[in-house]
Design a protein around this nucleic acid. Sequence first.
DNA 1: GTCGTTATTCGTTTTATGTCGAACTGGTGT
DNA 2: ACACCAGTTCGACATAAAACGAATAACGAC
Lengths: 236, 236
Amino acid sequence: MKSGVRNQLAEKMAGEITLSDSPGQALKKWRVSFEIAPGVLSERLGVSPSVISDYESGRRKSPGTAIVGKIVDAILSIDEEHGGNHIQQFSSMLYTGMDDDVIYDMHEYVSPVPLETFAATIGCTLLCGSVEQAINGYTIINSLNAILQLSSNEFNRIYGWSTERALIFTNVSTGKSPMVAIRVTPFKPRCVVLQGIEAADVHPIVGKMAERDRITVMCTGMEVETIVSVLREKEW
Amino acid sequence: MKSGVRNQLAEKMAGEITLSDSPGQALKKWRVSFEIAPGVLSERLGVSPSVISDYESGRRKSPGTAIVGKIVDAILSIDEEHGGNHIQQFSSMLYTGMDDDVIYDMHEYVSPVPLETFAATIGCTLLCGSVEQAINGYTIINSLNAILQLSSNEFNRIYGWSTERALIFTNVSTGKSPMVAIRVTPFKPRCVVLQGIEAADVHPIVGKMAERDRITVMCTGMEVETIVSVLREKEW
DNA sequence: GTCGTTATTCGTTTTATGTCGAACTGGTGT
DNA sequence: ACACCAGTTCGACATAAAACGAATAACGAC
């Protein structure tokens, strides 16, 4: 996966801080772990140093999500500007050991996104099924060969936090193999996107298989790199 | 690991909600994912139903860590009472594939815990090194045989989020192998606890190896199950 | 269609957050 | 010993969160 590490780390930090009995101490723990001085943090946030102290000392017992988010982001940004050493150090805890090889990118939306909007964003042609649906996220699968070698437990990870998603298979030749993989699997995505293939070249059996699982199939000629950046940048 | 799943899930949920531009929508997403009606949630929280609506609609733009934590906990508790189906469904995303076999338990403290307190809690006898230190967490390693078969990447996971921790090795015979494993590894824990062995039976070389890496070594006769529960319950 | 239940919107009150700046504490260097 | 800087504590204040309850909107059941 591209740079989900930063996001995952941010989520872990924010989660830990939010669930802590003393969010202030948790905040401090992370700031100290990243070896960032209170003054540096406050300057980055554009607030007076006393603000940091007040939070960490626990004067604000239940800080809002907004500042927690800002502080976490500031800590990570500062580390990134210093070479990202600490982020890298923590990354081993987030690394699942297969993300890089198999999953090119993966994202969960906070609220459902209409399939139609999603399809338009990455220039899809509808092959079968309906676009009158919504998805909670997407997964871009790097190489089909790689996924065929996954254990079933690992395979299920491509569905992320919800099966209500689009699976985007890259560099597809006929589209048959991806559909077979899905037919065989207990979990079904809402939608399959075949990348790097024209609608005319898709194997006719793809439609039949998709119908059985009621999956919407689309194809796009857009470059993988473009898809990744377009989906990442887009605000829904 | 025992039941870190609930905690990890809670952390993931809280993190996502906290970092979201619209925490309300994120909250709703999770409540809906768990198929919990607003009324049920509000009742569990002991608040009026309008409160839930207000959060989810975004009237509260930046809810405090306290309620976010309460809501996440309520969602998980309700699911648990209904059999924990949804928690189980999400657990595959948290499962790393080795925790159960190798790591018996693992925990991170929000603030440093004095080694002396820690040692006393699990009935340790000091073998070498100082207790004038502090740790950020601990890892209980289930079986030494299992860890010897880990890849280096996997091995580093036993250090969790900080190497400033205690590694507790269970069912130790002489204590030599655990120390060898640590000598060979780039990361060093603050402290090693040998479980199931008397101070007199510890191999003399253990002390020498520990000194080189400046690691405190202790041993305890306390049962593994007891250690787990005592450490989990203890408020620091 | 009407009723009852459940969910949302909104006005209102109380309490707490978010922020500053001034005053205070504690090391460091000269 | 003194001045200086970084960090903490604290009073103050505007604004927002946290909560309730009444009024309104939605949705099924009959």
